[in-house]
Design a protein around this nucleic acid. Sequence first.
DNA 1: TCAAACTCCGAAGTAACCGT
DNA 2: ACGGTTACTTCGGAGTTTGA
Length: 216
Amino acid sequence: MKIRVLIADDHPLFRAAMCQALGDIVGPLILQASTLNETLSQLEANPDIDLVFLDVKMPGNDGLIGLSEVRARFPDVLVVMVTALEEANLIRKALALGACGFIPKSASIECIAEAVERVIDGEQWLPESVANLNDDATETETKTDDFSVKLAMLTPHQLKVLRMVADGLLNKQIAYELDISESTVKQHVSAVLRKLNVINRTKAGIAFKHAMAVHE
DNA sequence: TCAAACTCCGAAGTAACCGT
DNA sequence: ACGGTTACTTCGGAGTTTGA
């Protein structure tokens, strides 16, 4: 298997272990990152990266913000989430946001190898222990799931804009950041409101923050 | 995907009016 | 004269529509 892999995790020991495990599977084409910014820089500098193992909790990535950022900026890159937590709700959100798979840090090398093969083949992959997690979602969580599904309907540009709206940026500021006109930002915001079925940017921002916050 | 033109809405400022 | 209330105007930001 000749694919280029990026391992994004803030723990050097885990990265080293992953490198060792993946080295036997995908060969030597493995890059590393310890923060979300570093991950994005690596993806920008290496457009040939096929697959990213992204830690749910690392500097700059609290929850699924990193996933949404990577999906928004690099829609062609496959993303497999890595976490010590096996929460059904978190996993559903990640998959709805475009993650191709979910690997617990306790996964065996065989398990990781199977994940890589399946994901590269275009399938979604979950280990059995995760796939069998009881669906104990509360009503609120169910609503959040619906929202995550709506989030997955957004285009990469719309996701970027939503993230900035959630951060409290004005349309003018978003336009400056993305180097587009203010009216284009408004068009994106309108599309986001329509797709998320909310009446204004404040509600969209709050809902987005809520959906991204997985460790409350 | 992007931009232009438009409407809508709320906040802030100002003037006119009224009661004390 | 002073303070409070109301009505009007202006302006900036948000959102929609239309077309390239």
